[in-house]
């Protein structure tokens, strides 16, 4: 570290600045390449004839091999079921997480009750929940309660591990909404519940989006819970489903796999671009 600094000092300001800019944008280019290349590779092969994928190595797609055929994987076999299961579980988790965290966050921001601080600490403990540690015992519990192989069972498990972040975020966010707005509505005759809907909920939209995003990330990303809690081949979600298909050797068409992977990546890509402010805001709360 000290060597470049010394030599920099001998260089003129302009040269140093240029070097800095080169290092800066060079780094940016490098990590963009490292992140995007695998994604490019996936997309390129998703649109390449599945025979060509395994026989002809090519850096760029060529007109002769470009095809949409791989996407027919979504119309037949088990994969469509897996994708639908993932979508259902993700939507269920988002709805449950937002609803529960909104009410709990409001309660924590607005009601005074004993042991609230202890509860908040207890909440943070949730960061330490690891799917594998919880999943192993949950397997038998879920099978006793009939939640094994049920999508709702997975939704409940995923919602629970999303809670610490979601409730914390809602709590902190609702605290920033002036209480006088609610009081103003009460004085105008609105009940507490109606005020919650008319005045609080519309103003928490950014927090709701952030919560939904993180719940999405957790549910869409999940493998461990689904692998353990949805052991049946027909009811499982995409991640364990496709891994089992590959394991059983029933699935080796890389073209098909890349096609469905690409489709599964589209929602995160869109969210990453259009909702990044919410993600950043969410992380800001999370670090507190």
């Amino acid at each position: 570290m000290s060597a470049p600094t010394e030599s920099e000092q001998r260089l003129s300001y302009e040269t140093r600045d240029r070097l800095y800019q080169v290092a800066l944008y060079g780094s940016a280019a490098l990590f963009t390449f490292i992140i995007l290349f695998p994604i490019y590779w996936m997309v390129q092969n998703a649109f390449t004839d599945s025979q060509a994928v395994i026989t002809e190595f090519a850096w760029f797609p060529s007109p002769e091999t470009v095809t949409l055929e791989n996407f027919s994987v979504l119309t037949a076999g088990a994969v469509p079921t897996y994708v639908i299961n993932t979508i259902v579980v993700t939507i269920g988790t988002i709805v449950l997480v937002v609803a529960v965290s909104l009410v709990a966050g409001y309660g924590m921001a607005r009601f005074r009750f004993k042991y609230k601080e202890s509860f908040a600490q207890f909440l943070l403990l949730g960061y330490m929940f690891s799917p594998i540690v919880l999943g192993l015992p949950l397997y038998l519990i879920w099978s006793e309660t009939g939640l094994l192989n049920a999508r709702i069972g997975l939704v409940i498990a995923l919602s629970a591990i999303s809670m610490p972040f979601a409730v914390w975020l809602m709590w902190k966010y609702i605290q920033t909404i002036p209480e006088s707005m609610e009081e103003s509505a009460w004085i105008a005759g609105a009940s507490r519940w109606r005020t919650f809907w008319d005045v609080v909920v519309p103003q928490t939209k950014p927090a709701i989006v952030a919560c939904a995003l993180f719940a999405f990330a957790i549910a869409w990303n999940d493998f461990t819970f689904a692998q353990i809690l949805l052991p049946s081949q027909d009811s499982t979600t995409f991640a364990p489903g496709i891994m089992r298909l590959i394991d059983q050797g029933g699935y080796t068409s890389w073209g098909d796999i890349m096609a469905v992977s690409f489709l599964m990546t589209i929602p995160p890509l869109l969210f990453a671009y259009f909702l990044q402010e919410y993600l950043l805001k969410g992380f800001e709360v999370r670090t507190r």
């Binding site: 002036p178 006088s180 009081e183 004085i187 005759g189 005045v199 103003q203």
Partner: peptide, 26 residues
Amino acid sequence: VALLFQDIALYPHMTVRENMEYGLKI
């Protein structure tokens, strides 16, 4: 009663009309 707050407390997600209308709507 009517109460005018120090921080005004207009609902930021409603138009001026909706703000004025809210009590009557209730």
